[in-house]
Simulated assay, not measured.
Amino acid sequence: MITAHIGGKFVLVCTYETKGFLYNKKYWCRGDSRNTCEILVDSDGVTKNTRRAQIMDNGRRGLFVIVSDLQFDDAGVYWVGIDKIYADIMTKINVVITEVPVSKPRLWPSSSLVDRATCWGQPVTVRCGSTSGTAVRYAWYRNAQHDDVLLHHSSELLLHCGAVVEDGDYYCVASNDASSQRSDVLSVQVLMPTDSSCIYVINMQGQSIYDCADRMSTTTVKPPPPPTTCQTTVKIYSDTTNQSLQLNQTTHEDQFFSRTWTGMSFWYTLLRWGCFLTLLAYLCIFIKCTEAMQKRARRRRKVRFRQRHHLPH
C-alpha cells in the first residue's frame, strides 16, 4: 500500500531477477484484476505515456515507477508487471490519496492591538490560518471549567462587548481528513463589564502586551454613594474646617510628590554632570600640582649643583 498526498508524488522501487528477466518488458497498469487491468506505461515506450506516470528499468539498480501531480481519482488498485510467456509476473499495489496535513494555525488580529481599541470597548476580529494543508476547516472554542465549548465553525472570531462578559481563553482548531492542529491560546481579561463601560484586554502570542490603566482612571463610572451612618455624619459637620485643611494638605502633598517624580530625570541628569565636572576639576588641580612640584624639584637640583661647584647665582 502506498499513501500519498494530493498534488504530491510517489516513487515505487521494485527488484527482480535480472538474469532471467533483464530484457523483458515491464509495465504499470491499473485495475482490480490482473487479467483485465489497463496498462498505463511500459518500459518499451510502446504504450502512450500519461505524462504523470513513468516507468524506468535500471537493471540491477531496480525498477522505478514514478507518479506525480496526484489527484483523488488516482486512488485505486495498480499492478507492476513483467511480461512473460504463459503468465506474467505481477505485484498488486493499493494507492491511497489523502489531503495534505494541516500545519499549526497562527492567530493574528485584523487591526493592531497597540492601538488599544479594546480599552474603549471597540470590537476586534481575530483570524486563524494554517500555512499548509488542503481543504482546511476551522473552528473556534472557548475553554470552560469542565469541557471546551464550540463557538462556531469559521476562521474568524469577533470579540466585542456583548461576547466578552467575563475572563476567558479561546483557541482555534484547523483540521481536514488527514490531520488536526490546535492554535495557541488567546486570553481575554475583562476589566469593566458591559453594563458599566466595557473595557477588556486581549493577550495573544506574537502581539505586544498592553494595558488600559489610563482608560480605567478616566472612566465615567459613578462613584459609590457616601456612608450614611450617624457617626460619620457627626464628624462631617463638626470637623468641616479640619477636613478642609487636611484635604488641602493632601492635595499639596500629592502635587509635591507629582512634581518630585516628574523632575526626577532632570535632577538625575544634573547630578551626573555635576559629578563629571567635579572629577574634571580634581584632575586639573592634580596636573597643576604635579607640574609645580616638578618645577620645584628642578630648582632644587640647580641650587645643589651650583653649591657643589661654587658657581655664582
Rank of each mutant, 00 (worst) to 15 (best):
T240M: 02
E253A: 15
Q255D: 00
S258G: 01
T229R: 09
M264Y: 10
R272D: 06
H252P: 03
Q243G: 01
T241Q: 14
P225T: 01
F266D: 15
T241C: 13
Y268H: 06
Q246R: 06
M264E: 10
W273I: 05
W267E: 03
R259P: 00
G274F: 02
L271M: 06
D239A: 13
R272E: 10
T232V: 11
L271F: 04
P225E: 08
S244D: 08
K235P: 02
Q249V: 09
G274C: 14
T269C: 06
P227I: 03
C230D: 14
W267T: 12
S244K: 14
W273S: 11
P226A: 02
S244Y: 11
H252N: 14
T250K: 13
R259L: 14
Q231F: 03
T262N: 10
P223V: 00
L245W: 05
R272W: 03
T241Y: 06
Q246D: 14
D254E: 13
M264D: 07
N242E: 10
L270H: 00
T240H: 13
T250P: 09
T262W: 09
F256M: 01
L245V: 14
N248F: 09
Q246F: 12
T260Q: 10
Q243T: 06
T229S: 04
Y268P: 03
N248E: 15
P224D: 10
N248L: 15
P227A: 03
S258F: 02
H252G: 10
K235L: 15
T262M: 02
P225M: 09
T251I: 04
P226Y: 00
K235G: 06
W267C: 11
W261M: 07
T260P: 04
H252T: 15
Y268S: 14
F257R: 08
T269Y: 00
P225C: 00
T269Q: 09
T229C: 03
T250I: 01
M264Q: 12
T240G: 15
K235W: 05
R259C: 04
P226S: 02
H252Q: 14
T228G: 04
D239W: 07
G274V: 00
W261A: 03
P224F: 05
P227V: 07
D254P: 03
Q231R: 12
P224Y: 00
Q246K: 09
T233K: 15
L271R: 00
Q246I: 08
S238G: 10
T228R: 15
I236M: 13
S244C: 11
I236P: 02
S265G: 01
L247H: 11
Q249D: 13
C275K: 10
N248G: 04
D239S: 12
T262Q: 12
M264K: 14
T233C: 01
Q249M: 08
Y268L: 04
L247R: 15
L245S: 06
G274S: 15
D239L: 12
S265M: 03
F256G: 04
S258M: 04
P226K: 02
R272G: 08
T232P: 09
T262C: 07
I236S: 00
C275W: 03
S265A: 08
T232A: 12
T251E: 06
W267F: 08
Q231H: 07
Y237E: 05
P223G: 07
M264W: 07
F257C: 01
T260W: 02
F266K: 05
E253S: 15
P224R: 06
E253H: 13
T262V: 00
T232H: 02
F257V: 05
T260K: 15
R259F: 01
S258N: 07
P225A: 01
